[in-house]
């Protein structure tokens, strides 16, 4: 289980997160929706300490960690039990696809080179990119890079994977293949927190949807509840702009 309580964060004078609390159960897939500037990406980054929150508590792995005052050791510990999939892929530019997946296995988990190679190759096979294992990121398409990014995350066998708009930097025709892979991750039963704009994906895979706006959680619930019976006016407005109305034939 991973739980965040009372997360606050400002950039200068702008309050990006005003008291956000979210609880995610083991194996649960949570999708966070919201307009740009709603703070959803910042929230995700705070979990992994890529952004330092101004206040808040992270309950994870049986520990309670102060997001503001967390020590080096605690941060490293959280990062070693979570993985992050970046909007812009974040592959190591000087390493091949295989080396990208191996890096954490050998350097963080101290696995032998042979074992790490085996795990990494399996992971690349699983995302359908084994034939590209010796390619550098600059030689791969965006969709391929993102699949390597997902393989890198999955290979570490983390308790939670955080996805930060994993398809929003992709060309439309490459979104499908990437979402397919993310759906497969969901089937594995790994806890996932996904920030995305892909409604149909959210509807298919999410156990729960959280709608954020203006730095607060506006509403949360099962996908059908949020999409078809939203309680809040703000959610309704947001959805009406995203879901094309005329695509529903009654």
């Amino acid at each position: 289980m991973i739980e965040l309580v009372g997360v606050k964060k400002s950039f200068g004078k702008q309050e990006v997160l005003r008291d956000v609390s979210v609880k995610v159960n083991n194996g649960e897939v949570v999708v966070i929706l919201g307009p740009s500037g709603s703070g959803k990406t910042t929230f995700l980054r705070c979990i992994n300490f890529l952004e330092r929150a101004d206040s808040g508590i992270l309950k994870f792995d049986g520990k309670e960690i102060d997001l503001k005052r967390a020590r080096k050791r605690e941060i490293l510990d959280v990062r070693r039990h979570t993985a992050f999939v970046f909007q812009n892929y974040g592959l190591f530019a000087h390493k091949t696809a295989l080396q990208n997946v191996m890096e954490g296995l050998t350097q963080v988990q101290k696995k032998s080179k042979a074992e790490a190679t085996k795990i990494a190759e399996d992971a690349l096979k699983w995302v359908g990119l084994i034939d590209k294992k010796d390619f550098y990121p600059s030689q791969l398409s965006g969709g391929q890079q993102q699949r390597v990014g997902i393989a890198r995350a999955v290979a570490l066998k983390p308790e939670v994977i955080l996805f930060d708009e994993p398809t929003s930097a992709l060309d439309p025709e490459l979104v499908g293949e990437t979402l397919e892979v993310i759906k497969n991750v969901a089937k594995m039963g790994i806890t996932m927190i996904v920030v995305t704009h892909e409604m149909s994906f959210a509807e298919d895979v999410a156990d729960r949807v959280i709608f954020m706006d203006g730095g607060v959680v506006v509403e949360e619930g099962k996908p059908d509840e949020i999409f078809y019976k939203p309680k809040e006016e703000r959610t309704r407005q947001f959805l009406s702009r995203i879901i094309p109305q005329d695509s529903y034939v009654i």
Partner: peptide
């Protein structure tokens, strides 16, 4: 993002510098 990617897989600051 290269730093963040290093941190995200659990590399320490020093390791992120020397390896990435």
């Amino acid at each position: 993002i290269q730093y963040e990617a290093g941190y995200s897989i659990g590399l320490s600051k020093v390791k992120t510098l020397t390896r990435i």
